[in-house]
Design a protein around this nucleic acid. Sequence first.
DNA 1: TATGAATGAGTATTCATTCAT
DNA 2: CATGAATGAATACTCATTCAT
Lengths: 200, 200, 200, 200
Amino acid sequence: MPKIVDHNAYRNEIIQIVTSLFAEHGYAALGMRDIAKALGVSKGTLYHYFPNKEALFQAVCETIVQLDLAAFAAYHEQAGATTLQERVRTVLRYCAEQEAWLMQQYLVLMEYVRVNGPNELRQNRIIQAATDEYVAAIAQYLGTSDHTAVTAFFVFLTGLIFQRFFDGGATDFDGMAEWFSAVLSASLAHADPAGFRNTS
Amino acid sequence: MPKIVDHNAYRNEIIQIVTSLFAEHGYAALGMRDIAKALGVSKGTLYHYFPNKEALFQAVCETIVQLDLAAFAAYHEQAGATTLQERVRTVLRYCAEQEAWLMQQYLVLMEYVRVNGPNELRQNRIIQAATDEYVAAIAQYLGTSDHTAVTAFFVFLTGLIFQRFFDGGATDFDGMAEWFSAVLSASLAHADPAGFRNTS
Amino acid sequence: MPKIVDHNAYRNEIIQIVTSLFAEHGYAALGMRDIAKALGVSKGTLYHYFPNKEALFQAVCETIVQLDLAAFAAYHEQAGATTLQERVRTVLRYCAEQEAWLMQQYLVLMEYVRVNGPNELRQNRIIQAATDEYVAAIAQYLGTSDHTAVTAFFVFLTGLIFQRFFDGGATDFDGMAEWFSAVLSASLAHADPAGFRNTS
Amino acid sequence: MPKIVDHNAYRNEIIQIVTSLFAEHGYAALGMRDIAKALGVSKGTLYHYFPNKEALFQAVCETIVQLDLAAFAAYHEQAGATTLQERVRTVLRYCAEQEAWLMQQYLVLMEYVRVNGPNELRQNRIIQAATDEYVAAIAQYLGTSDHTAVTAFFVFLTGLIFQRFFDGGATDFDGMAEWFSAVLSASLAHADPAGFRNTS
DNA sequence: TATGAATGAGTATTCATTCAT
DNA sequence: CATGAATGAATACTCATTCAT
């Protein structure tokens, strides 16, 4: 019998902690040495659970997606919106509240891409799968099957977060949200005239 | 061996060349040694014109914006679109064609952020000013004063480029463009019923 | 999970398996982790049977000699050559066929030297004894008591294998064998005019 | 003007010193850190002159060959042997005297091979070229064009050095030399009946 | 007896920057 | 002004070994 340690449980514990470390320091600036120190273990131990930095990062990425989806589910459950308009606004409000955290994730992701080369990312299905999951979650919540519109919604949200990051928050989130909410609702109503079917 | 004795002129020449180098290789992957070699100069000489890598990088960032605005102006001048719909499509087509290059710039920008820390970015007006200039250029070209709609357009373009970067091009640019083009035109027509005034 | 409870028996089983592993990968490139994995055992278990990597390696070295002598005996028994010339050729053919394997052993041996330092080798009778056994085996097979000639034969074989290792096989084995076979036969015939006595 | 340092001269100086370091400690046990320390410079400086450990080692290898050839030339010049027999003996005596040094070289070489994998060696022409040079030098000195015999001579010398290394010097060098000298002379005389032409 | 978690010193290599010439 | 030699701290990763369970 080995030392009594649930390998998988500890792995997850590491991921939990390291997630915030990456968010705070980014990919390149956070060395394996630093990570180990923050975890209170040796480098060797860290490598015992993850074969290399990249694997650790990817595990973190996968976790983040699940965390985000769960957080969104919890949020909209509590919000209890019923009409399409309200639900669109709920999504927007969620993003507004999570903005800083979402941006952090984007930042780390971008850095990872630059460090490891974009090509490896392209072959990496994780991020594409994550995007699909996000879009699907929104589509289900909005109760529409208009994939283009929902993707456009997601794209707009992404763009808005970046925009506000770049201009230091000068762009008014609510104004943009209002505008997009209106055109999106109009578009969905037009494409889906039978009305809004709650499928959640 | 710089042919140009004028300090400032040579500085600019360096910036011109290094801009494309950073765009291609990113910040971290491009060493001062590589830059010097590409310039046909010794590292020491490079340090005579820029005190450190960061200063060089910032000079490059400032240059990029001007290059882009000029490129867009040249593009739409040649396109010669007259109706609002056409001009919206011209902008979209421009982005589609420039997509890779635009993404490269975004990547460089993101690295700039990681290098300097997000805080300094907030205080740094360069990027905010750049965004304003981009939005203004589009507004002028479209001949509308609906700032919100134009900003939304810009935001959507930004988001679309990132989206396609992350999913490896899986999202269909033309489909998204079509969709957004429609809602934007409708929105602008509604907000600006008097029609479209070419103010360029 | 060793099936065999007898400590010594299991030790030998390990040696058997690990011998081929060292031959294939060499000393430095083969980690205790790899060995344990190949044995289907944990590292801890491995350390129960051998106090350290070096002890395991030495045990392997001792085994190799016995394997070789047995292999040669089996080979020449099957070959059934009767004249001196034929037997010289049989030895040469054996070496040609076993070349890769013999070279692997030499490599392992060399690493043994590096590991223990050449000085310890000098004091270590194992290898010297092994050489004696090899020479004696050949002498007996050739049926001659000309120790010098047989040692020279052995020396030549050793040199030839190394030579071909270093030059990537450029040196022609058969050509060399032919040449040496001729001079050796001549030498033996001259030194031992009474002829060739099969003493095996 | 850079710091006044003759790059090539210093490179050679490094090679000189490092040659003996490799001979003493072997390839793997001698770290770049140790080398730098022995040279009295920083690791960075070392990498300024050699891109990696392997390049440094190869440079050392190439140098060794030249040193050896020169040493042999100096030796036989001084020896002034004129007959074939005498020259064969001169070569043998040279090897006897250089034995320890030659063995050291072989040891380092073998280790390098194990560390970097034999495949890379195979593709590496340096060692094969070195062997050719050695054989050619001997052939020229002996004044014979019998490539097989000279190669056999070389092979025998290699084997003898290894043999004596393995058995701790138990094998009598002079006895072996005598024996081989006789058969070689006989072989050469037979193959080259016109006699021995001094071509040195 | 058997396990595998933990260690930490060790490896080659990189790179922005300084400075003597 | 220009050079490139020199630096040294930093990086990801390896591995024989120990030991609590």
